[in-house]
Design a binder for these strands. Structure first.
Lengths: 179, 179
DNA sequence: CGAGCGCTTGATTGAGTTCAAAAATCGTGG
DNA sequence: CCACGATTTTTGAACTCAATCAAGCGCTCG
């Protein structure tokens, strides 16, 4: 992935922070339009539905940006929670500080790419949820994010896949037997 | 929704076309980066998975734009099919004709909004698929798109909701009984 | 007018949930 | 460094929702 400065033309509003496992950085309903670049560590974004269940949208580790893109673009209150899975070192910046007019064409393209990339990921996710068994989803996750598997608690992987922790445990049991 | 010219600064590349029910406008693998503004009628975008099943991403009727945003942003071949559910009158335009540099800040914002809106829709869709029963999904569809219900064949609504046509039929049967 | 497509309905099956309890792991303070 | 409580993971049994399979009805349009 490209470096932070390919997307941001200014660092003066950005601050490096050290945050601890479990620390909440963005809460549903927040007015802020913060985004987080991960230097080191692991964050996640998620919602909580009416039944009180968490649904994880994305994990973000070293070199990635995590944010509630949608609410930022529209200046909505946040719809997602963002918190830390590991102690992390992150760069916090506020997207409101960057007017589109101040960005170069290259940076505008990067911005559009960022959004389009997110769309691509979400589209694949929709297809997955509609057509693929839990077992296949887990296999795909293993291939897509081999490095995350050891760092993310299983119940969170289950949440990302849209299944219960029990189901994931049984799937893993099956796979282990098969070997 | 805003008018077509809020997004496009030029109409000279755009052409109005009359297309018939069933006509295919974009095919998976196409190199074109066409987008379609619907003057009148009804289109849909969808993929076909490895098992040969259609999965509908979106319907678009009067006043809406439909396109394979993701592949356009990256100049990929198309990943979606787009075809007509009704005889339609559409404006065809090629997004490649519009360089970001040529667009006003206002238009750039519109562009970013368009992408963010798509992200919002897809995120809600993911949550739906992960946490909501088929019956509830159908109810939500009814509320969200009351005008489409009569125009879209049921098997396509089922495809959009991620369930089989049989299941949708039974859900409708239940609802009818309840009244 | 008939053939095919779309919708309905019913019976059966199966993947994944829910509930419950045991086993393993983690983290924290002494 | 160990011990203990809390959280995760595993395992099992019963159940549920939606898929699959199969048959029948009703329209449309060719």
């Amino acid at each position: 992935m490209q470096g932070l400065n390919d997307i941001l033309n200014l660092d003066k509003n950005a601050k490096t922070r050290f945050v601890k496992k479990g620390e909440m950085l963005l809460r549903e309903g927040d007015e802020s339009s913060l985004a987080f670049y991960i230097e080191k560590g692991l964050l996640r974004s998620y919602t909580i539905d009416e039944k009180g269940k968490e649904h994880i949208f994305s994990f973000a580790s070293e070199g990635w940006i995590i944010a509630d893109i949608d609410s930022q673009e529209f200046n909505h209150p946040a719809e997602l929670f963002i918190d830390c899975i590991e102690d992390s070192e992150i760069v916090v910046f506020d997207r409101k500080c960057f007017k589109l007019a101040d960005l170069s064409e290259q940076q505008l393209r990067e911005n559009a790419n960022l959004l389009a990339r997110r769309i691509a990921v979400l589209q694949k996710r929709v297809i997955m949820l509609m057509s693929v068994s839990a077992q296949e989803r887990y296999s795909t996750f293993l291939k897509s994010f081999p490095k995350l598997v050891n760092r993310v608690p299983q119940r969170m992987i289950a949440s990302y896949l849209g299944i219960t922790p029990e189901a994931l445990s049984k799937i893993r049991g099956q796979i282990a037997k098969g070997k």
